[in-house]
Computed example of a mutant assay.
Amino acid sequence: MTDHELRHIITKARDAKHGGFGVLSTSEKLAAALVLNRPDWLAEMNYTLAEAIERVGAEWLSLIPEAARALEYEDERAAGNA
């Protein structure tokens, strides 16, 4: 696991959160849906949770909780500054 991969996942999830999927790869879309806890996005892509987990792979999957916490922290900071 690298810091670069974590930043990549956070960036892609942030992009998806603010503007949709755009030109993300399938794995990036699935990772974003998992980070953002969006089972509706998984369903729209015709993926089950188990299939999404398998597709993103063990390395990215291990980064999902940290990425989710980072984005949640960003949201909390933004709300505190509003």
Rank of each mutant, 00 (worst) to 15 (best):
E28Q: 11
E54D: 13
A32D: 02
H4D: 13
G19D: 12
P39Q: 09
A52K: 01
A78K: 13
R7H: 14
N81R: 14
I64L: 08
G80M: 07
D40V: 12
I10D: 01
V56N: 01
I9D: 02
T2W: 01
R55K: 15
E5W: 00
K29L: 06
T48R: 07
D15G: 09
A32M: 02
L6N: 01
E76M: 10
Y47I: 03
A32K: 00
L24N: 06
T2E: 09
W41R: 10
L30C: 10
K29A: 11
R38Y: 06
D40K: 14
A43C: 08
E74W: 04
A43R: 15
E44F: 05
E5I: 03
A50C: 07
A50V: 15
L24H: 11
P65T: 07
A32H: 03
A52V: 07
I53E: 13
V56I: 15
D75S: 13
E44V: 04
A50H: 13
E51R: 14
V35W: 00
A58C: 08
E54N: 10
N81T: 06
E51Y: 06
T11W: 04
A67K: 01
D15F: 05
A32C: 07
H8R: 15
G19W: 09
V35R: 00
H4S: 12
G80R: 11
R77D: 07
V35S: 01
F21M: 13
L24F: 03
R14Q: 10
P65I: 07
T48C: 07
I53A: 10
L34M: 11
N81K: 12
N37I: 06
S27K: 13
F21L: 13
D75K: 09
P65Q: 05
A16C: 10
E28V: 02
S25C: 07
H4R: 14
T48H: 09
W60D: 07
Y73L: 13
